[in-house]
Amino acid sequence: MSFIGSLVIILLFTTLAGHLTARVGIPAVLGQLLIGIIIGPGVLNIIHPTDLIEQFAEIGVILLMFMAGIESDMQQLKKYFKPALAVALSGVLLPVIVMGTASFCFGYHFQEALFIGVVFSATSVSISVVVLREFKALNSKEGATVLGAAVADDILGVLLLSLMIAIVGSNSGTGGQESPNNILLQLVLQGLFFAGVFLLVRWIAPSIMYLSTKLLIPTSRTISAMIICLSMAYIAEVVGLSGAIGAFFAGIAVGQTPTKKIVNTNIEPISNAIFVPVFFVSIGLSVSFNNFLVSLPFIVIMTILAILTKWLGGEMGSLIAGFDRDSGRVIGTGMIARGEMALITAQIGFNAHLLDKNLYIDIIFVIVIATLLAPLLLRWSLRKLAKI
Rank of each mutant, 00 (worst) to 15 (best):
L16V: 13
A22C: 05
I26Q: 07
L30D: 04
Q32Y: 07
L33P: 00
I35P: 01
I39E: 03
I39P: 01
G40K: 01
I47M: 08
H48P: 01
L52K: 11
E54L: 15
Q55V: 10
A57G: 12
E58M: 11
V61D: 03
I62M: 08
F66I: 05
A68D: 02
M74Y: 09
L77V: 08
K79Q: 14
V87E: 06
V87F: 08
V87S: 03
V87I: 11
L89E: 10
G91R: 01
L94H: 04
I97P: 03
G100D: 02
G100T: 03
F110W: 14
F115N: 07
V125P: 02
I127S: 02
V130T: 12
F135R: 13
A137S: 15
N139E: 10
T145R: 01
T145K: 00
T145Q: 03
V151H: 03
I155L: 14
L160E: 01
M164F: 06
I167M: 14
S170C: 12
S172L: 12
G173Y: 09
G173N: 12
S179R: 10
L184G: 07
L185Q: 11
L185C: 12
L187C: 12
L187H: 09
L200P: 00
A205L: 11
M209N: 06
L215S: 08
I217S: 13
P218F: 06
S224T: 08
S224Q: 04
I228F: 04
L230D: 04
V238D: 08
G246K: 04
G246A: 08
Q256K: 14
P258K: 12
P258G: 11
K261G: 14
N266M: 14
N266I: 09
S271D: 10
S271Q: 13
S282M: 13
G284K: 00
N291F: 06
L293F: 13
S295W: 07
P297E: 09
P297N: 13
T303D: 12
I304P: 02
K310A: 07
K310L: 07
G314H: 00
I320T: 04
A321E: 02
A321T: 03
G322K: 08
I331C: 04
G334H: 09
G334D: 06
M335F: 05
I336C: 07
I344K: 00
I344M: 09
A346V: 12
Q347Y: 06
N358V: 15
L359S: 02
T371K: 02
L372H: 03
L372E: 05
L373H: 06
P375C: 05
R379S: 14
S381C: 13
L382P: 00
L382M: 12
K387Q: 14
I388Q: 15
